[in-house]
């Protein structure tokens, strides 16, 4: 009998990724509701030392695959490792973070197991469901909740029959569980079957990553700039941010242009933030940006194009040239304080 929820843990420089801990915490809540245990899947090379940390963060079992063949992330061998662990441990539910890695590893694993998967959940819950076709009742199954059709409609999705029930969950939505060194749990090491061929099909030639130094998660005010800003515009944003005691955010277009380092990027491939006030300046409002900031309490947009999509998700907007609006706003706020 399967009796657990497992969370796939991504690691970064020898530490569990924050979004993985977040998900572990959320899985712990679900486990309580469903009467299951919560565990972690930890795959990589020289990652074993992380297992204890996962126990402190709430995992009651950690399934480790520590293997030199898994030294750097490579989809096919990782798929085989995760599938093998799932077959051996038969979990009810397996959750992944909806990151660039999670969004390709999770579906690959699901397809190999011929089970269902829901992408980019903004919430997961446990509930009962009666199939209206057959009248059959499924108890304590996973409700996978996500926006669909461009985000205006929410859908709840279940995987009634096949196991495990799988989902990727958006990062940045749940609190990171506190570290509690009194927690205990078991660490299980698995050796897995990785076909020879899978190791040679894809060769990782180069990985370039910038380390994230700025943490925007706890910022109350974020002033964010996009392609409309230019290097000059970011100087104006810094002045505005300093009057507001805020931090600087950016769209990917601005990061790619080199006006601001990557650790300020907000969105799908950047950070997820929810400050009290988010001011988007010269940002058009592409979905990949919006997923990273849409839970901000108040969104203010400054853009010269009245049709820019960012205005559709803003509480307030000023249509105008940012090179005029931002300095005036900064001056006005200085006077006030």
């Amino acid at each position: 009998m399967s009796n657990k929820i497992l969370v796939y843990i991504e690691t970064l420089e020898g530490l569990p990724a924050e979004h993985s801990l977040e998900l572990l915490g959320k899985a712990g809540d679900l486990a309580k509701k469903a009467g299951l245990d919560v565990g972690a899947i930890l795959v990589g090379y020289e990652v074993k030392s992380i297992a204890q940390e996962l126990i402190y963060r709430g995992a009651s079992e950690v399934h480790v695959v520590d293997d030199p063949r898994l030294g750097s992330y490579n989809l096919l061998p990782y798929t085989s490792a995760v599938v093998d662990v799932i077959k051996k441990t038969e979990p009810e539910i397996v959750l992944f973070s909806a990151t660039v890695i999670g969004r390709e590893l999770a579906p690959r694993v699901a397809a190999r197991l011929k089970t269902g998967i829901t992408a980019d959940c903004t919430d997961v819950d446990i509930g009962d469901w009666v199939d209206p076709g057959t009248g059959r009742k499924y108890e304590k199954i996973l409700y996978q909740i996500r926006p669909t059709f461009g985000g205006e409609i929410m859908a709840a999705i279940v995987t009634p029959q096949r196991r495990p029930q799988m989902a990727t969950v958006r990062p940045g939505l749940f609190p990171i569980p506190p570290r509690d060194e009194s927690r205990t749990g078991k660490v299980v090491e698995w050796s897995v079957n990785i076909p020879e061929s899978e190791q040679s099909l894809v060769e990782v030639i180069e990985v370039k990553r910038e380390k994230r130094k700025v943490d925007l998660k706890s910022a109350r005010v974020i002033v964010s700039g996009g392609r409309g800003c230019g290097a000059k515009g970011f100087e104006l944003l810094r002045e505005l941010a300093s009057v507001l005691n805020g931090e600087i955010g950016a769209s990917r277009a601005a990061v790619d242009a080199g006006w601001i380092p990557y650790d300020h990027q907000i969105g799908l491939t950047g950070q997820t933030v929810k400050p009290d006030v988010y001011i988007a300046v010269g940002i058009s409002g592409a979905v990949q940006h919006v997923v990273g900031m849409k839970d901000s309490k108040i969104v203010i947009a400054i853009n010269k194009d009245p049709e820019a999509p960012i205005f559709r998700i803003a509480d307030y907007g000023i249509v105008g040239d940012l090179f005029v609006v931002v300095p005036k706003l900064t001056e006005r706020l200085k006077k006030k304080s």
Binding site: K114, M154, P306
Partner: peptide, 22 residues
């Protein structure tokens, strides 16, 4: 052939105020 079922859909109200000053 589909393991998943959509059991519920609902529209989210856009909670944003959408006051744009021109």
């Amino acid at each position: 052939g589909s393991p998943t079922r959509v059991v519920k859909m609902w529209r989210i109200e856009i909670r944003r105020k959408g006051k744009i000053f021109t």
